[in-house]
């Protein structure tokens, strides 16, 4: 009985992720897309907890739900669009896109589903210590470079959006 909790949770999370992800692409209203995206992020955080990576799950919620979704909602509110028929939602290249995506998707899905691993038992203990030691000891230099990237992105975004003061 207790053995079934983990697969059941996995099934619920999978259905939520796939449904919400498809909703992001197919939803008629853009705010619905944004909220479904936040919902997908939350469910992926649930997957991380299921995998025993609770630190990464917390960062996932903190960064994606708390910051990126709000940023995207800002973007949605600053670019109001008049409503349009559903037929105009997709680009003109949609058939070419489908032709390109579907075969690759089928191949990758087949590979993923046929994946058999030897290590089915997850790691014991949290991922706080491994994550901290790897970020601040083994990957300290890339971490610093990443912070420079963030600074550059911040400055770039401000310069792009700032209006010229009259």
């Amino acid at each position: 009985m207790l053995d079934l909790i983990e697969p059941a949770l996995f099934a619920v999370l999978t259905i939520a992720i796939v449904a919400a992800g498809a909703g992001v692409v197919l939803a008629n209203r853009i705010t619905t897309s944004a909220l479904l995206m936040a919902f997908t992020f939350l469910n992926i955080a649930g997957m991380f907890v299921l995998l025993g990576a609770e630190t990464v799950a917390m960062f996932q919620v903190l960064i994606y739900v708390g910051a990126i979704t709000v940023l995207i909602l800002y973007g949605v509110m600053f670019t109001p669009q008049s409503p349009r028929p559903y037929g105009l939602f997709f680009q003109t290249q949609k058939y070419w896109a489908a032709l390109l995506v579907v075969p690759i998707a089928i191949i990758v899905a087949l590979i993923a589903f046929s994946f058999r691993d030897s290590a089915t038992v997850g790691a014991k203990g949290g991922d706080l210590l491994p994550l901290a030691t790897s970020v601040f000891r083994d990957f300290a230099f890339p971490f610093e470079v990443a912070s420079v990237l963030l600074l550059a992105a911040m400055v770039g975004a401000i310069v792009l959006v700032k209006r010229d003061e009259d």
């Binding site: 992720i17 796939v18 992800g21 498809a22 992001v24 692409v25 853009i30 997908t40 669009q81 105009l88 939602f89 997709f90 680009q91 290249q93 949609k94 896109a97 489908a98 390109l100 995506v101 690759i104 998707a105 990758v108 899905a109 993923a112």
Partner: peptide, 16 residues
Amino acid sequence: AVLFFIGTAGVLVRRN
């Protein structure tokens, strides 16, 4: 993989 291809489809087909 499924989620990745949902995202790819979104990038390729949506206008917004």
